[in-house]
Design a protein around this nucleic acid. Structure first.
Length: 798
RNA sequence: GGGCGUUUAGCUCAGUGGUAGAGCGUCUCGUUUACACCGAGAAGGUCGUAGGUUCAAUCCCUACAACGCCCACCA
């Protein structure tokens, strides 16, 4: 008798089976034994694994996605498709930078004082470690993906594709550099896209401040040093007479004069109906200024990149915003220009989605993607059903977002990411040329050779190789003062530099390497990580034979040179609904733009995993289920089942240990029912051909019918129904009824009937194992091999 | 301020235009060619509220309520 234990021991089986699969080579579609019918190309089925962030390990949410994708892949592989599931990891620019910043913080270090290359190298090592761990976890979950095509979003071939896309967008006028008010996080010192802003409701004092004859309401008195004008609604009868006039006001740093303009953006019903125009620190104000450029002065920067007041604020310079607000209010009260304060004004404020700090709107030159033309096509793809979103109601959400889309800021002022392939060269006096001008004189004076210089906010960094030693010098405002004292630079230079920092440099070159001529400096910024991951479906597949602009490198894998042709467009994108805008919509836009085809035909969006009290799982709440921990205890198959049954698209998934235990019991059930059949095979020693009764044939027909229904459910992305149906059939029909009915026959006098009973059970069991395999690959494979030692269930015909 | 979703058994959730389903939990019985991580059976629901369409509504429509989520530059 096969030495089957009375219980399924997943720990003994899983590693062994995964190795068997991997060694078989069948994860790689090129090795699949496909029926070569006619000379038709085999049908493919492709899924791109969402590249997980390489800044930590996988949690149960990742396990949901991996399970559902593996179900699809295993099902279609068994159906005879040439299946590719391409795994990968994302460098996850800002997210990883934040994680790493925290690590540095704990070590008492700070990213702003570490040289760029050094920091880059450290984070690189950090992500490589995480990647290893993540991939091991992915394997443990049974993922049957093609490791030979594993891709990291910083692989040279991906960077190359991303560069080409950027260049193409630039040439097509769909990417532009502009000075705008951006969402600036003073803690992380980078701009963020609109999607990375989290609005929260807050109660703040509303200050009513006198500006000469007028009074206005504001929550931000500390920005008053940046005021360049006042505005009222042109239809507002109260203030009409002031429009176009100049008013005199008392300011904290002396008397002020402001022009009053009329602008529709002003709501007469809010506050007093008068607003101050602070173009540097409010996007509405910036827009109003742009409409009245001839009447009022432009941005005057009062708050710097670290969230402190600048020298424009006089005695308040150096204070942080919150502190400055109170002090300024107090000072205003003292000189009698603070009319009153309403304390409980409720409003929405923009915060950083990562650190929760209040964002500062700041004017910064950044790269923007002109999204409207791209969005139009992405909308069409869905309305014309070239892409179907499951669940359907999320289509509306998708469309609504795209219809109201605003241009996308893709520049980030961090180190970790794909550096933007943009180079600046401008006339003398502008920022970058100035750096060179300065650098040249500096180097001449100290007799060193510059290797690189970089620019961050108010600081120049210069790295050099000197005659005696290498070094780095960092120049902040203070050291600039020193340079000025030494007459290495003059006031005009500082002024020019300051002014020009707000402008877009005159000459731009887009490309991997700059032109030969002197003075080109690369943009210091990196891409928003979603700009690169948004190209994932085609960037992973594009090979060197693809005619796409400047590509001519051997960095792309020659072994897979036909991949794009073979596997694109991909079939299904399976991911969480929380990144519908961040990722899915961008993939559609960029995929259509770059390839002219949709990147995938179906989008399946799963929900968030919650605990049994419907709480979102988070490390701080301590309710996180570690997928590997529970898989260790209950088996991977049980975890996969628990994540599939009762999991409907778009709805959050509730999971508890009880539920997982229930499916562990199911795995044992499968094991024991099979054990029963095997025991009978032992005693009956059946011949290869067995005559069945008509009842047996009916039962076989029934399981085939169930199997086909399960398949239909998978095809329709109804995984919960598919898994539920297979589960129910196996336990309550096969185990509870068919086996029980067979028992008397198996032990009866009629040997022929006993054999028939056995024969039917074996066939039904094998069919059941096939049907359950996509969901519970390990147990089913292990048992199948007891019957068919030379075969691999993973590639058996469905 | 817009938009979306949810509301079904004690709990977590499926589901259908026609006598209401699963898992877990509860209760009763049961050691039988696998399995107690088991089997047989039972209790338990006016399917959020109020209207409407229909021969028939838990399902379709309308309104409302509660909860939740997403989007949004009103100082």
């Amino acid at each position: 008798m096969d030495n089957l234990e009375p219980r399924y021991n997943h720990n003994k089986v899983e590693e062994k089976i995964y190795e068997l699969w991997e060694k078989s080579g069948y994860f790689n579609p090129d090795n699949l034994p496909l029926s070569k019918t006619k000379n038709l190309k085999p049908k493919t089925f492709t899924v791109m694994m969402p590249p997980n962030n390489s800044n930590g390990s996988l949690h149960i949410g990742h396990a949901v996605g991996l399970t559902l994708q593996d179900i699809l892949i295993r099902f279609w592989r068994m159906k005879g498709r040439k299946t590719l599931w391409l795994p990968g990891a994302d460098h996850a620019g800002f997210e990883t930078q934040v994680v790493y910043d925290k690590k540095l913080d704990k070590e008492g270090r700070n990213r702003f004082s570490i040289p760029r290359e050094e920091l880059w190298r450290e984070i690189w090592d950090f992500t490589q470690e995480n990647k290893k761990l993540m991939y091991a976890q992915t394997k443990k979950l049974g993922a049957s993906c093609d490791w030979s095509r594993e891709t990291f979003t910083l692989d040279p071939k991906i960077i190359e594709v991303v560069y080409e896309t950027f260049e193409k967008l630039y040439k097509d006028g769909l990417v532009y550099r502009d000075l705008k008010i951006v969402n600036w996080c003073p803690k992380h010192r980078t701009a963020l896209s609109d999607l990375e802003v989290k609005y929260i409701e807050k109660e703040d004092p509303l200050y009513f401040i006198k500006y000469g004859p007028l009074t206005l309401a504001t929550v931000r008195p500390e920005t008053k040093f940046g005021d360049t004008g006042l505005a009222v609604n042109p239809k507002d009868a109260r203030y009409k007479k002031y429009i176009g006039k100049e008013i005199e006001a008392v300011g904290l740093l002396g008397p002020l004069k402001f022009k009053v303009v009329g602008d529709e953006a002003v709501d007469p019903k809010f506050g007093t109906g008068v607003v101050k125009i602070t173009p540097a620190h409010d996007s509405t104000d910036y827009e109003i200024w742009q409409r009245h450029k001839n009447e009022i002065p432009g941005p005057k920067i009062v708050i710097d990149e670290t969230g402190r007041l600048t020298s424009e604020a006089g005695e308040f310079a150096g204070l942080k915003v919150a502190e400055a607000r109170e002090k300024v209010a107090e000072a205003m009260r003292k000189i009698g220009i603070l009319e009153k304060t309403e304390l409980d004004y409720k409003h929405q404020i923009a915060t950083c989605y990562k650190c929760g700090n209040t964002l500062e709107p700041l004017p910064r030159p950044q790269w923007f993607v002109k999204t409207k033309p791209l969005a139009e096509k992405a909308i069409k793809a869905v309305t014309e059903k070239k892409i179907k979103i499951h669940p359907k109601n999320l289509e509306k959400v998708y469309l609504h977002w795209l219809r109201n889309i605003r241009d996308w800021n893709i520049s980030r002022q961090i180190v970790w990411g794909i550096r933007i392939p943009a180079w600046f060269k401008t006339e003398i006096g502008t920022e970058f040329e100035a750096q060179h001008f300065y650098l040249k004189s500096f180097c001449e004076k100290v007799d060193i050779k510059p290797e690189e210089l970089s620019w961050e906010f108010d600081k120049f960094k210069i790295r050099w190789a000197g005659p005696n030693k290498d070094g780095i010098i960092q120049l902040d405002l203070k050291s600039i003062q020193t340079l000025k004292d030494n007459n290495w630079i003059d006031e005009a230079w500082i002024q020019n530099n300051k002014i020009n920092r707000l402008n877009t440099p005159g000459k731009i070159f887009i490309g991997k390497t700059p032109p030969e001529s002197y003075g080109w400096v690369q943009d210091q910024d990196v891409f928003d990580t979603w700009f690169s991951s948004g190209q994932w479906p085609f960037a992973t597949l594009l090979a060197s034979d693809e005619k796409s602009g400047s590509s001519k490198s051997e960095t792309r894998n020659p072994k897979h040179k036909d991949d794009f042709k073979t596997f694109y467009p991909t079939d299904v994108m399976e991911t969480g609904y929380d990144i519908l805008f961040f990722w899915v919509a961008r993939m559609v836009m960029l995929g259509l733009y770059r390839t002219g085809k949709v990147p995938f035909k179906d989008v399946y969006l799963h929900g968030l995993v919650r605990d049994k009290d419907r709480q979102k799982m988070s490390k701080s709440k301590g309710n996180v289920i570690d997928p590997l921990g529970v898989a260790e205890t209950y088996g991977t198959d049980a975890v996969r089942m628990a994540l599939t049954v009762g999991n409907t698209p778009g709805n959050d998934i509730v999971i508890s240990e009880d539920k997982i235990r229930g499916y562990r019991n199911f795995a044992t059930k499968i094991w024991n029912a099979s054990r029963f059949v095997l025991m009978n095979r032992e005693t009956l020693n059946p011949p290869p051909k067995i005559a069945l009764t008509s009842k047996d044939k009916k039962n076989i027909a029934a399981v085939l019918k169930i199997k086909s229904q399960v398949g239909k459910h998978i095809e329709k992305f109804e995984f919960h129904l598919a898994a539920g149906k297979a589960y129910h059939y196996f336990w309550h029909t096969f185990a509870d009824k068919l086996i029980e009915e067979a028992k008397p026959r198996l032990g009866g006098e009629d040997k022929k009937d006993a054999l028939a009973a056995y024969g039917a059970l074996e066939i039904i069991l094998k069919e059941s194992l096939k049907m359950l395999h996509p969901f519970m690959p390990y147990v089913t494979e292990e048992i199948y091999r007891k019957f068919e030692p030379k075969k691999i269930l993973m590639v058996e015909k469905w």
